[in-house]
C-alpha cells in the first residue's frame, strides 16, 4: 500500500526491550511483524488513553470477597517421583538448570 501510513505506536527498540522482558526470542522478521501488529492493535486500544476517567477507581476483582484464608494445616505433598516426573532434566533429585551468566 502506498501513501501515508501512521507512525508506529511502538518502535523497534521497544519491541526488543519488551521481548527481552518477556523472555521471547524473536527473529528479525518476527520483530518487524510484531512491531506492525502491536502498533495496529495499540492504535485501536489507544482510544482508552483519551477517555475521561477522573475519579473512577480501578476494578481488580469483580467479586466482593475478602479474607479468604486457609488454616495452617499441612496437606500431603507430592511423592518426589511425581514432582519430578515431567521435568526435562533431573539432577540429584532436583530440577536441572543451565549455566546462568
Amino acid at each position: 500500500m502506498l501513501g501515508y501510513s501512521p507512525p508506529p505506536m511502538i518502535d523497534e527498540s521497544t519491541v526488543r526491550h519488551v521481548a527481552r522482558l518477556a523472555r521471547l526470542r524473536l527473529s528479525p522478521e518476527e520483530e518487524q511483524v510484531m512491531q506492525q501488529e502491536l502498533s495496529g492493535i495499540l492504535g485501536h486500544i489507544d482510544a482508552i488513553t483519551s477517555m475521561d476517567l477522573d475519579g473512577v477507581p480501578p476494578t481488580t476483582h469483580v467479586i466482593a470477597l475478602e479474607n479468604v484464608l486457609r488454616a495452617d494445616v499441612p496437606r500431603d505433598s507430592l511423592p518426589r517421583e511425581e514432582a519430578l516426573r515431567e521435568a526435562p532434566d533431573v539432577v540429584d533429585d532436583s530440577f536441572g538448570v543451565p549455566r546462568m551468566d
Binding site: R23, A87, P88, D89
Partner: peptide, 16 residues
C-alpha cells in the same frame, strides 16, 4: 520456562 515441565530448546546458558 522448560524447567519443571515442558521441552526446552537446549542452550548452554539460561537466558538463551
Amino acid at each position: 520456562d522448560g524447567i519443571r515441565y515442558g521441552h526446552p530448546i537446549p542452550a548452554d546458558n539460561l537466558l538463551d
